[in-house]
């Protein structure tokens, strides 16, 4: 199986804040991992490090047996926490544009996902609500078959319908046994059954890590309640 991610003693400092402190994390392949923590806990920094957008001051990062760099991004789908799509493009245009960059783009999945996520492909991104734009951003990741999917807080600030649709699409397109997903969020609720493994992070450090079901058994509580206990 091997590891999809291996971080060893990673430290990333910004002026005035330590985003990650001596952070170590290993994740097996083929799992859906929930990266849970409040805002500012270091989730986004972790994602950016994995993508190679930023470099750590200390420590080592191995992603899919390589070092983060622009070319390893062919094997990773990254959904940023930010509203990153060009408002002047139509959904069709953004799909065509993005598909040119990836060999693992599955053209056949486009219509399925448009339907699953209820997206009209001829509309301009700029005319959509935030939830709708999030659906499009997630769709761009799911149209591919990457080894690793990084979703940075896709559930925050979106409506319940969008949330349910995103979750459903995520599960329906998930390549069981082949794909790893790391989903960062601070709102768990209905997303709970998605996760194999949970990593709680706070102030740039891991608070608690384990298999979701083992944690539920051990604490006899659901993850949302464990979250409340961990971060109280």
């Amino acid at each position: 199986m091997g590891l999809v991610l291996d971080l060893k003693n990673v430290t990333k400092k910004y002026p005035g804040v330590d985003a990650l402190k001596d952070f170590s994390l290993s994740l097996d392949r083929g799992k859906i991992v929930g990266l849970l923590g409040p805002n500012g806990s270091g989730k986004t920094t972790l994602m950016k490090l994995i993508m190679g957008f930023i470099k750590p001051q200390k420590g080592e990062i191995t992603v899919l047996d390589g070092v983060p760099n622009p070319m390893i991004r062919e094997k990773i789908a990254y959904v940023s926490e930010l509203d990153v799509l060009y408002p002047w493009m139509t959904v069709r245009e953004i799909l065509d544009f993005t598909s040119n960059f990836y060999r693992d783009w599955e053209k056949g999945k486009e219509s399925e996902l448009l339907q699953l996520l209820a997206i009209e492909q001829d509309k301009k991104i700029g005319t959509f609500s935030y939830g709708m734009r999030t659906r499009v951003r997630v769709m761009l990741a799911l149209c591919r078959k990457p080894e690793l999917v990084l979703l940075d807080d896709p559930f925050s600030g979106i409506d319940l319908v969008s949330r349910a649709k995103v979750q459903d699409a995520l599960l329906k397109t998930y390549h069981y046994k082949e794909q790893s997903i790391v989903l960062a969020t601070h709102i768990i609720d209905e997303a709970e059954p998605l996760f194999d493994e949970i990593v709680f992070i706070e102030k740039g450090q891991i608070n608690l890590q384990g298999k979701a079901d083992d944690l539920r058994e051990k604490y006899s509580k659901n993850i949302t309640d464990i979250y409340k206990e961990v971060f109280k």
């Binding site: 979750q167 599960l171 329906k172 069981y176 059954p193 194999d196 979701a212 079901d213």
Partner: peptide, 18 residues
């Protein structure tokens, strides 16, 4: 199959496999 069951009940396939 594990995958179909997972989609049907909306949980992670690894959980169904377990």
């Amino acid at each position: 199959s594990v995958r179909d069951m997972a989609i049907k009940i909306g949980v992670n396939p690894n959980t169904v496999a377990r």
